[in-house]
């Protein structure tokens, strides 16, 4: 559904991502992990067209992304950054309504259908009762949910999230990731995200892609990828891995820096 084929990205003259390929199937949750500075956020920004890539192709539902207009892309794909800034006086419902923007011509107003989609997005993110509050009055987790609600109102086929849990405390992290899982399970929305926390990646993903120094180190199911070897090799840490029921997904306990 979403295919990245040997793309390379350079910042000024420095090569940041080299010959990187992976693909995301319809209805999958895919996480990109890797150490700081490995290029994972850059990769996500490039495949969402926020920054240019220099070689290779990105295909969305069989169409080359660079052959599509920005608006066409915006109707199918939505990317949410780590931290977003809304004007101080913007209300939740106003923000979420902007998600309908790519579906409108420049003079069109929101119609009944749009308003229903906005209401649905607010319900999904449990923000219905906050709709007239300003974004700046919300807690970090609530604000992140409001931005996700805007993304939902955009009705994308694939949702890209750049470290959606950074800046949030553990209960809000859990809340956001559970929401992402619900969107995937209930609506079949395809998810591609960058995550820092290995346990989050492990328990919420169908597929994990590991980036190291701008190159793909490995990819596969959490059980294939999360091994003591991988953690020692990529993060230079010794770890212990346990498997818990019911899903038997790996749980990582870090022990000490690798010798």
């Amino acid at each position: 559904m979403f295919t990245v084929d040997s793309i390379s990205i350079r910042y000024e003259k420095k090569s940041v991502i080299r010959d990187f390929s992976f693909s995301v199937k319809q209805g999958e949750v895919v996480s990109i992990i890797g150490p700081n500075g490995s290029g994972k956020s850059t990769l996500l920004k490039a495949v969402s067209r926020l920054i240019p890539y220099h070689e290779g192709t990105v295909e969305l539902e069989g169409t080359n992304l660079s052959a599509m207009s920005s608006k066409q892309v915006a109707r199918k794909m939505c990317m949410l950054s780590q931290k977003n800034q809304a004007p101080n006086d913007m209300t939740v419902i106003d923000l979420v309504s902007y998600g309908r923007y790519p579906h409108k011509k420049w003079f069109e107003k929101l119609n009944q259908e749009d308003n229903e989609i906005v209401k649905w997005a607010l319900d999904k993110t449990h923000l219905a009762e906050y709709k007239d509050r300003t974004i700046s009055s919300l807690s970090g987790g609530e604000a992140q949910r409001a931005w996700i609600a805007m993304a939902l109102a955009q009705r994308p086929k694939i949702l890209l999230l750049d470290e959606p849990t950074t800046y949030l405390d553990i209960s809000h992290q859990y809340e956001v990731l559970e929401l992402v899982r619900a969107l995937n399970k209930e609506m079949g929305m395809t998810i591609l995200m960058v995550l820092h926390d290995l346990n989050h990646a492990s328990s919420y993903s169908d597929q994990i892609v590991v980036v190291q120094a701008g190159e793909k180190a490995m990819s596969g199911t959490p059980n294939e990828v999360m091994t003591t070897d991988m953690i020692r090799h990529i993060y230079r840490m010794d770890a212990e891995i346990q498997y818990y029921s019911p899903d038997n997904k790996p749980r990582i306990h870090l022990i000490s820096p690798a010798r």
């Binding site: 969402s48 067209r49 926020l50 207009s69 920005s70 608006k71 066409q72 892309v73 915006a74 109707r75 939505c78 990317m79 949410l80 950054s81 977003n84 800034q85 809304a86 004007p87 913007m90 923000l95 902007y98 998600g99 923007y101 790519p102 420049w106 955009q154």
Partner: peptide, 23 residues
């Protein structure tokens, strides 16, 4: 008058605006 909508979108920041399909 035509600028109003575009100026509003820019308020959300560059990344969000371009994510909403704006150049």
């Amino acid at each position: 008058i035509f600028a109003i909508r575009k100026a509003n979108i820019i308020r959300l920041g560059d990344q969000v605006a371009s994510n909403l399909g704006e150049n």
